[in-house]
Nucleic acid binder design. Structure first.
Length: 373
RNA sequence: GGAAGAGUUCCCGAGCGGCCAAAGGGAGCAGACUGUAAAUCUGUUGUCGGUGACUACGGUGGUUCGAAUCCACCCUCUUCCA
């Protein structure tokens, strides 16, 4: 049911264009996947996402487990039906919440005890439980339950998390039988190249048709993240997509693809959009700011998204400023379309064997922000 | 005409002798945001080139070492009585 075919390899960079077949359709990589944590890409309808070019979206095990509960989703006929999205869905395992809800958790080898961020109730998620939930949800791609560490974590703790992630992976793998859903294992190892290599070597036996790189974009400087990707690159198998988790700024996506990555996801376009910022080929611009109050040009010149075709910066700024939902919607839509346009341009460059040239040209005009968080 | 109350920094509004360039909120301005506890969070908002000075709490004049705060008169507004 799952298959990854390489359609083109860039002669200049080695980046590839691929076709990833899933039960809910094909995905052409490189691909950016918008995040819809609670079963919706915040503010946008499935039709709008499709029009923007989204091929697959994410959802979250932890959030849907807490509310409404996977049995409700299953009762609706599965997540695709429940949220009216008939294309592929990837569910994150809740591993990232282990990391981001750091004050509310306790990690043991069996699993993680959480306090629900919603009502404070005591919860427990194990690797088995994470898979069961994802099976009830019926996503196409299930993520292994992993332990993500923050940038700055010492070597000993990073190694512990890596080992635990591997033990958990084995348990996830035993549970993840069935043809309709595939399990993506996740490489950890923090910012230690040798740990990263150890992690990928021990993880690869579990990678059937997809491999994820986790624990990056967690507060390190961007060059550090690129170093980790460089260290991993020789170890990637060719017959499956490589997914860099949680990355979504334009510069990081280009740098990732140049380093062999095929899939990305990020909350950035929607979050930053709701907060009044537009992603463009010149870098982020804060539409909320005063200089745009009488700027009647589109959000980004040359963009073909619904927001750019129909509205001005001045109008979007007014909406954001007035606290109108539509402002965040239009910017989210633009930002997602922007990232899809980016990957389209990147694919063009791969087809023309000139991705390194494209990167240089693109970054020459792009204002980069320093750290990943 | 009489009585009572009120006038505070862009707005609302606290302060009622020194710790006040003045709480708090709003609005404004700016920054942040990368597997979403986020339509959120943070900073800033009298002027001048910095620990300092200057201008400010309706107006004018007083009391006091010191006043947004007390006194006198004036102006404006609100409510009530004729």
């Amino acid at each position: 049911m799952f298959k990854y075919e390489i359609l083109k390899v860039c002669g200049q960079s080695g980046a590839r264009i691929g076709r990833f077949t899933t039960p809910h359709g094909e995905i052409e990589t490189p691909v950016f996947m918008p995040v819809g944590t609670a079963g919706t890409v915040k503010g946008l309808s499935p039709e709008e996402l499709k029009e923007a070019g989204s091929q697959i979206i994410l959802s979250n095990t932890y959030h849907l487990h807490l509310r409404p509960g996977e049995e409700i989703v299953k009762g609706a006929g599965g997540l695709h039906k429940f949220i009216n999205w008939d294309k592929p869905i990837l569910t994150d395992s809740g591993g990232f919440q282990v990391f981001s809800l750091t004050k509310l958790r306790k990690i043991t080898d069996e699993g993680v005890h959480f306090n629900s961020h919603i009502d404070g109730s005591r919860r427990f998620i194990s690797p088995e439980k994470a898979i069961e939930i994802q099976q009830a949800l019926g996503s196409d791609i299930m993520m292994a339950f992993d332990e993500c560490t923050a940038s700055g974590t010492d070597r000993r703790k990073s190694k512990e998390a890596l080992d635990r992630t591997l033990r958990w992976l084995d348990r996830c793998d035993k549970k993840a039988t069935g043809e309709k859903q595939i399990l993506f294992p996740i490489v950890q190892g923090n910012m230690y190249a040798d740990l990263r290599i150890e992690s990928i070597e021990k993880t690869l036996p579990y990678a059937k048709c997809g491999l994820a790189i986790g624990g990056l974009s967690v507060g390190e400087e961007k060059p550090v993240m690129y170093e980790m990707l460089d260290a991993l690159r020789p170890y990637y198998p060719n017959n499956m997509p490589r997914y860099l988790m949680g990355v979504g700024s334009a510069d990081c996506i280009v740098e990732g693809i140049v380093r062999g990555i095929d899939m990305f996801d990020c909350v950035l376009p929607t979050r930053v959009g709701r907060n009044g910022m537009a992603m463009t080929f010149e870098g982020d611009i804060t539409i909320r700011n005063a200089p745009y109050k009488d700027d009647y040009s589109p959000i980004e010149e040359g963009c073909d998204c619904y927001a750019c075709k129909n509205y001005s910066r001045a109008y979007v700024r007014h909406l954001i400023n007035a606290g109108e939902i539509m402002g965040g919607r239009l910017l989210s839509l633009h930002n997602i379309r922007f990232l899809h346009r980016l990957t389209e341009k990147i694919k063009d460059a791969i087809r023309a064997d000139r991705l390194l040239d494209f990167r240089r040209e693109m970054l020459a005009n792009y204002r980069i922000k320093g750290v990943t968080t």
